[in-house]
Design a protein around this nucleic acid. Structure first.
Length: 591
RNA sequence: GGGGACGUAGCUCAAUUGGUUAGAGUACCGGCCUGUCACGCCGGUGGUUGCGGGUUCGAGUCCCGUCGUCCUCGCCA
């Protein structure tokens, strides 16, 4: 008689009563009552209670996580026997025969119970961790989401094209993962940080609309929202500008959320220039689910007697603040904690003021003694009587950064984020083209070197003038959701001469350009259409739509903070012969 | 590379100021129990306190080093 299942463990209902069925699954729990024996059998689809009589239970040995095949008859449960907590709670399977298909030692992970196992153990025994219903739900959700997104792109006539995993190292950007070549001694492939160049070349090739579920690799340190390999929904389109890309994605997101989550998104998403995001929220990925916006106090500071404030403004910096409504009554202890946070980011201090028309209280009170000064400060902050106002005075970038972080922390700590407003998307546009790097003493691309400048003349550089590179604006954009950067993209440079000029501005000389990007610039020269694209982080999006704050829980086999795979033990030493074959000698001390 | 937290039974945790034979819950094993569903009751097995060194009459506890995990800053075109 076959052990193969006729139904799953989540399938049987009252309508199946009387049927002879076979279930396969893992032993989730056992309840031995002497004369009668209960067994919960689990698979991906659910739990079903199996009833064994005394004789049958005594005849076979099994424990948690054994794999069983149970054959028997479906019986209705009546009255108090019904388990209304379970989908299969109105029936049970009365076993007639039972076969052990596979055994298990005592499991290191409690799959059926309530205790949360240490992450280290979960990662080492990932195959058991993934048996947990929560993890299976996460992976199912991710699969549904990605498939819905694929269908949405196909409806818009995009085609999915695979690009190489073994490709060429790039000088800009993150650290590359390198793969030595056996055939070409001393030469290396790199794993792609993104399919950027290939997808642009697909546009030159006339593919017009491309997308790909693309694995990307960046050899940088990990975070809760960052793994060394991650997955993007990557896309590119020809003959378009920003709004065309936004519209394509808004349609995809609307359809995907409806399809996979049953959520109706409101489109179009708001657009916000980078400068506005930085000024109002202090960050380039603002969480728009709550207010508490930053306000400029520059004018007030310039006129004030407070030398710290006035000095900051006169030195070309900024004085900014935010007003915490009186109802949230920050204590001195709260403010001290916030000051510690501020100093940790680099602020010299945190000034505060309890707003009041009569001067208020706190360190700033003596500079607000006049009703005029107090009123002006309250007006600048949009503050009401009794609000706790927090101030940072420093150079602009630090002032924004510190207050942006304080705003985010206050949003969480004070419970300012309304539960019902779950999906606060926004496009952030017009990022700077270049950012100055103090250590390297040169400019780097804020996005990547293929990003189109807002001004095709590059501030006159195309005509031989020398613009202020830090002031150039780009056509890069990010999609932000609830304070997370979900993805980014840009209108691309489709002109070979502009691309070469940008490389030069980044300090990449003609010889290096030719060696590293020659093929790409040459491709642009052969009839490149104007094009633009975007890539969405699927790990982050999956996590966020599940309400998770760590992307590990939507990745089947994630790596630890030190980029190890605890299950298979990667990375690992390899045989000397293997190294020799690829012409590599290790300089690491061998244990 | 820096900062912080953590590491004790299969799992989750406790252990006073450095002091008896390192405990509890759960899991596991044995016994009892015919309606449980995280069954219950009784009993039992189970420990290199991550690893190495040091201080001490005595170390899970203090010190040094090291390994690992998490969070985070730098980093992440």
């Amino acid at each position: 008689m076959s052990w193969q299942r006729t139904h799953t463990c989540g399938e049987l209902r009252r309508s199946h009563v009387g049927a002879k069925v076979t279930l396969n699954g893992w032993v989730n729990a056992r309840r031995d009552h002497g004369g009668i024996y209960f067994l919960d059998l689990r698979d991906r689809y659910g739990l079903t209670q199996v009833v064994l009589d005394e004789r049958l239970a005594a005849g076979v040995r099994f424990g948690p996580e054994y794999v069983l095949s149970v054959r028997g008859v479906v019986r209705a449960r009546e009255g108090a026997q019904v388990n209304s907590e379970r989908a299969t709670g109105e029936i049970e399977l009365v076993a007639e025969s039972l076969e052990v298909l596979s055994s298990s030692p005592v499991p290191p992970i409690d799959i059926s119970g309530a205790t949360e196992t240490a992450l280290e153990t979960r990662l080492k025994y990932r195959y058991m961790d993934l048996r947990r219903p929560q993890m299976q739900r996460n992976l199912e959700h991710r699969s549904r989401f990605i498939n819905a997104m694929r269908r949405a792109f196909e409806r818009q006539n995009f085609i999915e094209v695979e690009t190489p995993i073994l490709t060429k190292a790039t000088p800009e950007g993150a650290r590359d993962y390198l793969v030595p070549s056996r055939v070409h001694p001393g030469e290396f492939y790199a794993l792609p940080q993104s399919p950027q160049i290939f997808k642009q070349i697909l546009m030159v090739a006339g593919l017009d609309r491309y997308f790909q579920v693309a694995r990307c690799f960046r050899d940088e340190d990990l975070r809760a929202d960052r793994q060394p390999e991650f997955t993007q929904l990557d896309m590119e389109m020809s003959f378009v500008e920003e709004e065309d890309v936004f519209a394509a994605w808004e349609r995809v997101m609307k359809e995907t959320f409806a399809d996979a989550l049953g959520v109706e998104l409101t489109t179009p998403f708001p657009r916000m220039r980078w400068e506005e995001a930085m000024e109002r929220f202090g960050v380039d990925k603002p969480d728009l689910r709550f207010g508490l916006e930053l306000r400029s106090v520059d004018a007030w500071a310039r006129a004030s007697e407070f030398t710290v404030f006035r000095g900051a403004v006169e030195a070309g910096g900024r004085v900014m603040g935010l007003a915490v409504p009186a109802q949230h009554a920050l204590s001195r202890k709260d403010i001290t904690e916030l000051e510690t946070v501020a100093k940790g980011i680099g602020a010299k201090g945190l000034a505060w003021w309890k707003a009041g028309a009569a001067g208020g209280s706190g360190p700033l009170a003596k500079f607000c003694a006049s009703a005029e000064a107090a009123g002006a400060l309250m007006a600048a902050l949009g503050a009401a009587e009794g609000d706790t106002c927090l101030f940072i005075a420093d150079k602009q970038s630090l002032t924004r950064k510190v207050l942006g972080e304080l705003r985010n922390q206050l949003g969480r700590r004070l419970g300012l984020i309304p539960k019902e407003q779950r999906w606060a998307f926004t496009w952030v546009t017009h990022f700077p083209l270049f950012e100055w790097d103090e250590d390297a003493q040169r400019y780097f691309s804020a996005h990547h070197p293929f990003t189109a400048p807002e001004d095709w003349s590059l501030g006159g550089a195309m005509d031989g003038r020398e613009p202020d590179l830090g002031a150039l604006s780009s056509r890069a954009y990010d999609l932000v959701l609830n304070g997370w950067e979900l993805g980014s993209g840009s209108v691309r440079i489709h002109r070979a001469d502009v691309q070469q000029k940008v490389f030069s501005m980044l300090g990449i000389g003609p010889e290096e350009q030719q060696r590293k990007f020659g093929f790409f610039v040459e491709a642009l020269a052969y009839g490149a259409p104007p094009h633009a694209g975007f890539a969405l982080g699927l790990d982050r999006t999956s996590a966020l739509t599940l309400g998770l704050d760590n992307i590990r829980d939507v990745i089947a086999f994630p790596k630890t903070a030190s980029a190890s795979d605890l299950m298979c033990g990667a990375p690992s030493l390899v045989d000397a012969s293997q190294l020799a074959e690829v012409h590599v000698a290790s300089t690491a001390p061998r244990p």
